[in-house]
Write a protein that binds this DNA or RNA. Structure first.
Lengths: 143, 143
DNA sequence: CAATTATAGTCAACAAATGTCAAAGAGGCG
DNA sequence: CGCCTCTTTGACATTTGTTGACTATAATTG
């Protein structure tokens, strides 16, 4: 696959963040532009399109002398934490008798299975979906 | 039987995928069109008609400079790739009393929810995961 | 404090792909 | 032939990437 300049810059930045050891880097836009022999606004473009909040990044910058661009990567929420939260939710449902023991057992199994057999990214995705589906299901039940 | 151009392009792509060794290729639509001396939209047609979700493929693309089309072949190892198959499976579980009415209701709800709130491709992935988790759950239950 | 210098941001024009859609063409079958 | 379905084509739309001129802001210097 032929990668665009924007792709390369994106990768480069991500490697820098990985190596930083603190989920964050501070760069100079003009410097990075020079590294890739492109106009500075290209870097701005990459940051604007590939390092958005939605992608899990927060950026910050300053113009003028000693200017910089800081890119922070949101720490991935610990999947274990996520599972625990969801498990606690399910537990609560059982307590309030909104679901029975059998459903409870099944849900716990599904959660556990998901936790142990998937890549983190997929894991987090499906946990979110199960979570919202479940919440929606509960709300749909008559009291 | 005379093979149409579309057929030839289809075969060509499938061979490429076979040779890739990773059930996936990334091509440029315009390039492939040039190879077959046809208009680019012909390639789009082939992909749209022969590489669908139902056929076991997931595609993804990007427009603009250095654009591409990625075609992934789903691995055939999981029996729960189709919503209907999964729904039927759940139905069967109820029949055989491996799950109760409540669990059944919940599962159907979750499946339905998933179906209606996700893009087809994500849907397919999630259903696969739920399917195998469920299958594993059933197998773990005492008879 | 004003001027200068050093950064970064914005925006519009252009370039480079892919997607959409409808019309025309080609075969197959009763 | 006439109809139906699938294929082929091309004009136009949309998305993404690249570049550069111009603008905004902060530090430094005289």
């Amino acid at each position: 696959m032929r990668r665009s300049l924007a792709d390369k810059i994106e990768q480069y930045i991500k490697v820098l963040i990985d190596r930083s050891g603190e989920d964050q880097i501070v760069i100079q836009r003009s410097e990075l532009a020079e590294t890739f022999a492109c106009v500075p606004s290209q870097v701005t473009y990459v940051i604007a399109t590939r390092f958005t909040i939605e992608d899990g990044y927060i950026t910050e910058s300053r113009r003028g002398g000693k200017g910089f661009v800081r890119i922070m990567r949101r720490q991935e929420t610990n999947p274990f934490q996520q599972v625990k939260t969801l498990a606690a939710f399910v537990e609560d449902l059982l307590q309030k008798e909104l679901i029975g023991k059998k459903e409870y057992g099944m849900l716990v199994y599904l959660l556990d299975y998901t936790c142990h057999n998937l890549e983190p990214q997929q894991q987090s995705e499906i946990l979110m979906i199960i979570g919202s589906a479940l919440s929606s299901f509960i709300n749909s039940q008559p009291r």
